[in-house]
């Protein structure tokens, strides 16, 4: 992903040419949890930078707490701001599919980010992380590191397609490794809920070798519960999405947090930049950009540490 960004930035220098003023609408979920907060951070930063670079580009950013508000936001954008392009991270796939298709059919250039629509081929550009890869990457690490008969517990996120894909990827990867999954409960991408679930796992199971928390907020909660029980030496925890604090601890070689898996919130920047380029350059930009998850290890951790990000 990083590579591609560099490439496109280079392109800009060469091909930038004055065009008539264009308006790009950006619609993303509100900052209700850490990852979404980082998403907002990156979106705002990118818009600010692009706005300075291309005075002809106008941006409209909306953040929404639920799918139906998002639909209303999109309608407003088309009706009152007369957007030429749309960058949308659908809150949920199904309810947003039809509204986005209608906007696309009205002639707006459309980029869909992360959560794919329920129908293929609507959008011009699709930029996404890969949830199956997110789960698989973590699962492969578990399969390599643990041996047959080792016991793990899983804290899942909010029941959703994302969560299902991650868990499916994880389960596929550990299949045949002989690792025993003791339990899977939902921590809802929330520290407090994950803390509670982990406390109860610790009461319930006398032996746990590792925890897959599927998200760094959940991992933070799980770590606090493990610390309370005094069983830090018994198990390690893998979260996901590359939270600043986690990356830092991996860098420091914390044995409790050996690795992490990326799911970069900066993908929104990629999406907005590519959409801007569609207008500002003549480079053909369509298709899919899937950003696979990478494993963060103590060796490569410094590449994943972003000082200014809130996440």
């Amino acid at each position: 992903m990083t590579k591609m960004l560099i490439a496109t930035t280079a392109l800009v220098g060469v091909l930038a040419a004055p065009v008539a003023a264009q308006t790009i609408g950006v619609s993303i979920p509100a900052a209700t949890h850490g990852w979404a907060g980082a998403l907002n951070f990156h979106a705002e930063q990118t818009i600010r930078e692009l706005g300075e670079r291309y005075p002809d580009l106008q941006f409209v950013l909306t953040t929404t707490p639920d799918p139906s508000t998002q639909v209303s936001d999109l309608e407003d954008m088309v009706a009152t701001r007369n957007i030429d392009a749309l960058v949308v991270l659908p809150f949920e796939s199904e309810p947003l599919t039809d509204p986005v298709r209608r906007i696309k059919e009205s002639g707006v250039w459309t980029t869909v980010v992360d959560r794919g629509l329920a129908q293929d081929g609507i959008e011009d550009l699709y930029v996404a992380g890969d949830n199956t890869s997110f789960g698989r990457t973590a699962g492969e690490y578990f399969a390599q590191t643990l041996s047959e008969g080792d016991k793990i517990v899983v804290i899942r996120g909010i029941a959703s397609t994302i969560d299902n894909e991650r868990v499916a990827g994880f389960q596929e990867a550990i299949e045949g490794s002989g690792i025993e999954v003791l339990a899977m409960e939902h921590g809802n991408f929330n520290r407090d809920d994950a803390f509670t679930v982990m406390q109860d796992y610790l009461s319930r199971f006398g032996e746990i070798d590792a925890v897959w928390a599927a998200d760094d907020d959940q991992a933070m909660g799980a770590l606090a519960a493990i610390e309370q029980s005094g069983r830090q030496d018994e198990m390690w925890v893998v979260g996901g999405a590359g939270m600043k604090e986690m990356v830092q601890r991996i860098q420091q070689g914390d044995p409790q947090i050996p690795v992490n898996v990326t799911y970069p919130p900066s993908m929104i920047s990629t999406a907005i930049e590519l959409t801007a380029l569609h207008f500002m350059t003549s480079a053909p930009i369509t298709g899919e950009f899937i950003i696979a998850s990478e494993l963060i290890t103590p060796e490569n951790a410094e590449n994943f540490y972003f000082e200014n990000s809130p996440y």
Partner: peptide, 11 residues
Amino acid sequence: RLGSASASTGV
């Protein structure tokens, strides 16, 4: 307990 607060605290 967790030493942190976020938008999802106390939901």
